[in-house]
Amino acid sequence: MANNRMEANTPPPSVSPSIQTVTKTTKQKKRTSQWIWYIFLIPSFLGIILFMAYPIVESLRLSFFKSNGTIETFTGLDNFRTVLTSGPFWNAVWNTFFIGIFQVIITIPLGFIFATLINSASKGKNFFKVIYFLPNVTSIVAAAMIFQFVLHPEMGIVNFVLDSLGLPTPAWFSDPSTSKWGVILLAVWHWIGFVIIICIANLQAISKEMYEAAKIDGASSFQQWLFITIPNMGGTFAFLLITGWIGALQRFNEVYVLGGPNGSPARSIQTMGAFIYERGFTGFEFGIASAATYIMFLIILVFTFINLKISKLKL
C-alpha cells in the first residue's frame, strides 16, 4: 500500500523537472538557432560589405576629390561641374540613350510577335526556340567581332543583300552618322532571343480557359491575341522594358570592341560606360570618373523607379 502510494506519488515530482529541462533545452536551442542563422549569411554579407557597400561609399567620397589613385586633393563639387559641363559626357549620354531606346522599342514588339508565332506553331517549337536563342548565348564580344565584318561597308553580307535589293548601302561603323545603327542592329540580334524566351515562358502561364471561353464566344485567333494575350503580357513587357533599359544604360563591351574606349568614329558610339572607362583607366582621372559613375548610377536609379512605378511591379 505504502509502496503503491509512493509509486503513485512519485511521478508528479519527477515529471515536472523533466518538463522544465525540456523547455529549458528548447529555449537554449532557440537561442543557438538564432545565431546559427547568421553563420549561413556570413559569406554573402562579407561580400556585400567588401564588394558592394564599401566601393559605393568610397566612390561617392572620391567624386569630391581630385585623384589619380595616389595623390588626393579635396575639390568639392568641381568634378560634378566638370562632368556636367563636358561635351563628351553629354554626347555619351545621348549615344547611350539613342542606342538603348531603339534597341528596346524594336526588340520587344518583334520578339513578342515571334514568341507568339513559336508558341502557336504545331511543329518545330523547340527547334525554333533553340535557334532564336543562339545569338544570346554567344558572348557579346565575339558577336561584335563578327558584326564588324557582317556590317562591313564593302565586303559585308548585309550591304551585299541591301545592294542586290537595290537599297542604299550605309557605311555602318565607318561613318559617325550610321555607326549607332550598327550597334542597334547588333543589340537587337543579340537580345531578341532573351525577349522571345521570356515571352514564351509567360505566354504559357496564361490560363487556357480564357481562350476556350473566347472561342465559344466566336472570337477569331487574332481577336484572342489582341484581347487576351496582349493584356495578359503587361507585366512581362514591363519586366523586359526594365531589364532591357538598365542593361542598355550599362552598355560597354560591344562598343569597346567596335570603337575602342573613345567610341570611334568621332565618339559616335561612346557610351556612358565607355566614357567612365576612358577617364578612369586611360586617363587615370579617378575623381572625374567617380563623379561620372555617380551621375550614371543616379540615372539608372531614377529609371528603375520610374519603370517600377509605371509597371506597378513589386520588387
Binding site: F51, P55, I56, S59, I246, L301
Partner: peptide, 12 residues
C-alpha cells in the same frame, strides 16, 4: 540595383 560602374574604381 547596384551596377558595376560605380564600384569599378574603388574595387580597383
Amino acid at each position: 540595383m547596384i551596377p558595376m560602374e560605380p564600384r569599378l574604381i574603388p574595387l580597383y
